[in-house]
Amino acid sequence: MQDISDDILKQASKGDIQAFEEIYKAFSGFVYSSAFRISGNSEDAQEITQDVFFTAYKSLKEFRAESKLSTWLYRIAVNKALNFQRKKKLNQWLSLDFLLENKPDEIPHSPAYNPLKELEKSELERIVQKAINTLPDNQRVAIILSRYEALPYEEIAKIMKCSISSVESYLFRAKQNLSKKLIDY
């Protein structure tokens, strides 16, 4: 994950689209990937990614170099992804979709037929991902940034605007909850 030169940053904040594309190239992978983890599907992740960079483009002038550009972008990404999910749930309710909905977030519950050892690797990943999706927001974001994006606790703390010990506590509780959710497998 590369950071970006001051020169590019300066040009981009003046509205230079080519300079901004450099920023996009450097960070869209991470933004898309965490949006994908948080939202759980690629269509939403695409919309969130576009929204994150559009917001970044408009507010780049306000970006202060006291934090890293990456931290600033990841923070926007995490907030947008969480908000997007909340809005989506509200919209599902408003559009009465919940009447037809089959609770897709639930972990498939058939341990008798699918003991973990017999499942495919991709299926295992899917089960862990689904279990992660049922965690409270703080625990979910912490575990996604730590497990999938391999960010250090310090960086996660900056993104989540909390202390390192809070991050440790979120991760501890996330692992505790995940262990419990995976008991039946």
């Binding site: 594309e21 996009y24 869209s28 992978g29 933004v31 898309y32 990937s33 994908f36 690629s42 992740a45 695409q46 990614t49 576009q50 960079f53 559009f54 483009y57």
Partner: peptide, 12 residues
Amino acid sequence: KQEAPRYIWTRL
């Protein structure tokens, strides 16, 4: 690692 599809940039 998930790669962001190229067309996101086009739309953006």
